[in-house]
């Protein structure tokens, strides 16, 4: 009798090997299976979203029922989730619908406001933390000031030297570091994928 974990491993192994093989084969049968697999991934993910939404609803509804600390926030979360879902199902998402109105006039301003607060924290943090305490911190400081100055019209108008220096920083030292990171991430991804396909790494399937 195969355990659930073994079944999961077999599916994972078969899907992984198929994913590798199909990349190199233009055969119509393989292509057809590949398209079906892509559909399955989308269907599974759509159900995962549903499970996620229900889980959020259950957690917050529980907090409201038990009158936990900050239960009012949970009540707002539950009410918002239900309201947006009902508005979407009832009137669609086209312009002029209740869903679009709620999105444009509640969600967008709220999220933009929270994100905009970053400007205040960044300024305060830069004032307190950006100090030239040693050579490395000095290089970081000068580079940051250079990029900030070069990325606004005033800096560009002041001298050609500023944008050219900023471009050099971005195209040479910054890019070489970024490329090294990308290559490292790529190799790491290949290794992890192989470990998952071969069943060495089983945390994803409860191993």
């Amino acid at each position: 009798m195969m355990t659930t974990r073994k079944i999961s491993f077999v599916i994972c192994f078969a899907a992984g090997i198929f994913g590798l093989v199909q990349y190199f084969s233009p055969h119509p049968a393989i292509s057809s299976v590949y398209r079906s697999l892509l559909d399955w991934v989308q269907i599974i993910f759509a159900f995962a979203l549903l499970v996620g939404a229900l889980s959020v609803l259950r957690m917050h509804a529980g907090k409201v029922m038990k009158r936990d600390r900050h239960w009012v926030y949970s009540a707002v979360a539950v009410a918002s989730l239900i309201a947006m879902t009902a508005a979407g199902f009832a009137g669609g998402a086209d312009r002029g619908s209740l869903f679009a109105w709620l999105f444009d006039n509640v969600q967008v301003p709220m999220q933009s406001t929270v994100f905009a607060l970053l400007a205040f924290f960044v300024a305060s943090a830069a004032y307190r933390g950006f100090r030239m305490r040693n050579l490395e911190a000095g290089i970081l400081l000068v580079t940051a000031l250079l990029i900030m100055l070069a990325r606004i019209p005033i800096g560009e108008l002041a001298t050609d030297w500023l944008p050219r220096s900023a471009d050099w920083v971005l195209n040479v030292p910054s890019m070489s570091a970024k490329r090294a990171l990308l290559i490292g991430i790529g190799l790491g991804s290949v290794t992890t994928a192989l470990r998952v396909i071969l069943g060495i790494e089983r945390s994803a399937i409860g191993g």
Binding site: A123, Y127, F130, R131, M132, L141, L145, L149, R151
Partner: peptide
């Protein structure tokens, strides 16, 4: 002006 302010703040702090 936002960038200029941050640059100014960093210089003043240093």
């Amino acid at each position: 002006s936002g960038h200029a302010l941050i640059i100014l703040l960093v210089i003043v702090a240093n």
